[in-house]
Design a protein around this nucleic acid. Structure first.
Lengths: 191, 191
DNA sequence: TAGCTTTCTTACCATAGGGTAATTTTTATC
DNA sequence: GATAAAAATTACCCTATGGTAAGAAAGCTA
């Protein structure tokens, strides 16, 4: 928690009141592997900031197949932002894939922070800008790279995620099946 | 221009000074089909707001193949946001695909508007939030839909883009070849 | 209208990746 | 360590999409 506040302070000047407000709308939580923090179909009133461990968000298609939108490791925010920003019910599920520590925010009150403490706007804008950049890059990679290339890039971005994430989650992030990923991994070793 | 300012005013309270500033950092431009507004490898110092017509942004891969990141129609913003937000050279090209009218902003000065007129922050935040949502949806669609499904969705989102966009641009947005798109179109008529 | 250019379609074959299912390996639990 | 559960690999065949290339259609330009 302290860490996050320091991070914010590096980006903007945070008044004491604003800092107090942040503490009042959040709480630190220990999450066990497998816990579901946001469930598809339900109201989304929480946003999480990961301080250790890893969460993922995914949707489930009509055939029951899961598609991973995001892995959130240390210092990332995760929630169902489609639902929050559109004020809709969750289409995503957010679950913990290893024991994690998060700071849980009340989404509504986190939104209100901008009206109450406009100093926070610049911080949030930077966050959103970074988010847009990473999504643009992901889309471009999906369009132009082969599955093995995407997998190698993924490993660079999440260096030790393989230690605790099943391959089928990685596959569902890359847009391939776990069997294909398995072949890719084997081909890689052969070389 | 007037239209954009009204749009902004619907979202936030815009002071006279801020409005004047907006006018001072922008100008309306008529763009001919085929004009390149941002070129890969160069410095990006402009952001465009489309008032009519259509632009697209794309990257070119190592084989010279183009991949469309975005089509921007009326009321959309377009630029190379990866370059702007990361302060890097352009990796994208932005070109007009039909005669268009745009409002051209100095990107640096548009960024500075937030420090000068903090009232603008909330407007920009909403823009970025919407942008994130549309990118999340695009990624999820790419992961879970077949090419024909993505094509149908695309036609709903850009109802008459086919009138002026060559198919291979659409294909390059959907992540397939123009030949595949051609087959999909034919199959669709048969049904 | 003729001729040129761009775009679209079609055909052929190649290939990456998918689906199902069986088997092996790893991990967790008692 | 034995057993069960979860995950990963492998095999088999299949299908969607890609690549090349040729031809047809449409759109420009003179």
């Amino acid at each position: 928690m302290k860490e996050l506040v320091n991070k914010i302070k590096k980006s903007i000047k945070l008044s004491t009141k604003a800092e107090e407000y942040i503490y009042s709308i959040s709480k630190e939580k220990n999450i066990l592997k497998g816990e579901v923090l946001i469930r598809e179909g339900q109201t989304v009133n929480k946003t999480f900031f990961v301080t250790s461990g890893c969460l993922r968000s995914y949707c489930t298609d009509k055939n029951g197949k899961e598609h991973t939108l995001q892995f959130a490791i240390k210092n990332w925010w995760i929630s169902d932002f489609i639902a929050i920003y559109n004020n809709e019910l969750a289409t995503l599920t957010v679950e913990s894939i290893k024991d994690s520590k998060v700071i849980e925010f009340n989404a509504k009150k986190l939104e209100e922070i901008h009206a109450l403490f406009p100093e926070f706007e610049a911080f949030q804008r930077k966050n959103l800008e970074r988010h847009v950049v990473s999504l643009h890059k992901r889309i471009l990679n999906q369009l132009q790279l082969t599955a093995p290339e995407r997998y190698n890039l993924f490993l660079k971005q999440y260096p030790d995620i393989e230690k605790y994430t099943p391959n089928y989650h990685i596959a569902s992030y890359l847009g391939i099946t776990q069997q294909s990923l398995s072949r890719i991994r084997i081909d890689k070793v052969k070389k």
